[in-house]
Amino acid sequence: MSTVLQTNQLTKHFGRIKAVQELDLQIETGQVFGILGPNGSGKTTTLGMLLGVTKRTSGTFSWFEQGEGHALRKRIGAILEHPIFYPFLNSIENLKIAAHIKDVQNPDFDGLLKTVGLYDRRLDAFKTYSLGMKQRLAIATALVSDPDILIFDEPTNGLDPQGIADIRKMIVDIAEMGKTIILASHLLDEVQKVCSDFMVLKSGVKVFQGKVDDVLNQKQRIEVYADDEEALRTALSEVNQVSSVKFEYGVLVAELNEEYSARDLNTFLYERGIVASHLANVRSSLEEQFLSILDEDD
């Protein structure tokens, strides 16, 4: 594995606003890396600095361990915030400009447009496209130089459920081609569905970084309920492996340590003469983790 991106104390202030503060980050080849954070947490600002459009206040970064020269960006396919194109030009003409800047020899525009499902509209001017089509053209443009790394900033923003599913599938497909992807999003389940690794930004500060799987599997959450709620609570409190019990939406939610399963819990309750009327294993969602990470830091 080699390092695709390294940042060192990267910082951006807009006047008094500290948009990004002393960010240290390392991304390796093949990762699908999620930058998760609420609105205004500094995701776009971070990517803007990495892509040479936002001037940093201090710190350094390095692409492909080769620094921050503009030519390195030719090996990156990136879209920041909204798809940006020349409004009066059609797909092919817009792709030509991107290919020209990126020094692409013999680009396969038709193939790309077929991949993203825009081939039929390729000769219409960009300004006549729907938002979903614009996003598709943006993805085609990002792919035009067959880059090793792709950067998407909220690529499903404003799309309908079908559009969201389509774009996510495209991103997963691209990841399966072995490309490194950086995905900024405030949608947790997007990161959960697409990413292998992620970090959480909060007011410009990195408050967490880890693997999506690790976070998901750290703790299991079990919904359990019995007619005799008091007895159930008492029983649960006696199990060492149960780290917390909460009452949520009419059931008790217990967090179990890794080695203890729902089955073990059920056996234990049965032995104590408590019959569970409801017992379900809920996957600990990233959302809970995300919220707890944000809470922790307050």
Partner: peptide, 9 residues
């Protein structure tokens, strides 16, 4: 902006 992102100096 997009030109710079694409790698134009």
């Amino acid at each position: 902006r997009q030109n710079f992102i694409d790698g134009l100096s």
